[in-house]
Simulated scan of single mutants.
Amino acid sequence: MKSWNVDDVMTKAVVSVDRAATYRSVVDLLIENRFSAVPVVDAFRRVTGVVSETDLLRKVEYAGDAEPRLFEGWRRRGERGKARARTAGDLMTAPAVVVLAGTSIAAAARRMDSEGVKRLPVVDDLGRLAGIVSRGDLLKVHLRTDDEIHADIETGILLPHLAESITSVAVTVAEGVVTFTGRVDRSSDAELVFGLTRQVAGVVDVKGSLSCEFEATDPLHPAAL
């Protein structure tokens, strides 16, 4: 069973800028390509930061403002500093929030949520830009067909783990919802199948029941999951 990761859904032809890129050129780039942010890279394609629309809007937000006030907080001062920035190196948010190539879809989604970002540059083990993944990209796993999901479950889960009782287990997939019926030898087998199925790319939910001949802890008593 294939485990999907960011490499499977990311955009590989990534537009980036260097630290010397001017404010106007970054604005033009975002508008022309309908981007909301762009990675900033060094001469070795290592990601050093990200310039977003929020960074660029500081110049509009603080246009005409006076110098920093005496008791102004550090965050406000930092935002005001970006309002005077002229290059990507001064505008960017650094360090960039990135993920390594090979990171699972689930882990990337959790990182986006915890960091409050809409996209993540994907880097190799040397920190070089390999792609970029957005929230929309992570949802691509749910574009998989029911037939593809069904094939993954049969070949990647049922055949390796329920070879002896596979003929007594039926599985259907509709709109990404997987339903099991039938019988397995042990309750632990049923728990394993349900747990692995939830990890299959594109699965929305797992339903149904698998009755069991024996509990894993007591081979003399039948059970059902």
Results as ranks from 00 to 15, higher is better:
Arg46Cys: 12
Val47Gly: 11
Thr48Pro: 07
Gly49Leu: 13
Val50Thr: 01
Val51Gln: 12
Glu53Asn: 15
Glu53Asp: 15
Asp55His: 10
Leu56Ser: 14
Leu57Thr: 13
Leu57Cys: 12
Leu57Asn: 13
Arg58Met: 02
Arg58Asn: 03
Arg58Ala: 00
Glu61Phe: 00
Glu61Asn: 02
Asp65Asn: 02
Asp65His: 01
Glu67Ile: 00
Pro68Asn: 02
Pro68Leu: 00
Pro68Asp: 00
Leu70Asp: 03
Leu70Val: 05
Phe71Trp: 07
Phe71Asn: 07
Gly73His: 05
Gly73Gln: 05
Arg75Met: 05
Arg76Met: 04
Arg77Pro: 06
Arg77Gly: 06
Gly78Ser: 04
Gly78Glu: 05
Glu79Ser: 02
Glu79Ile: 00
Glu79Phe: 02
Glu79Val: 01
Arg80Leu: 05
Lys82Glu: 06
Ala83Met: 00
Ala83Cys: 02
Ala83Tyr: 02
Ala83Gln: 00
Ala85Ile: 09
Ala85Val: 07
Arg86Thr: 03
Arg86Gly: 04
Ala88Lys: 11
Ala88Phe: 12
Ala88Thr: 12
Gly89Ser: 07
Asp90Cys: 08
Asp90Val: 09
Thr93Tyr: 06
Ala94Glu: 07
Ala94Thr: 09
Pro95Arg: 03
Ala96Ser: 08
Ala96Asp: 11
Val99Trp: 14
Val99Pro: 14
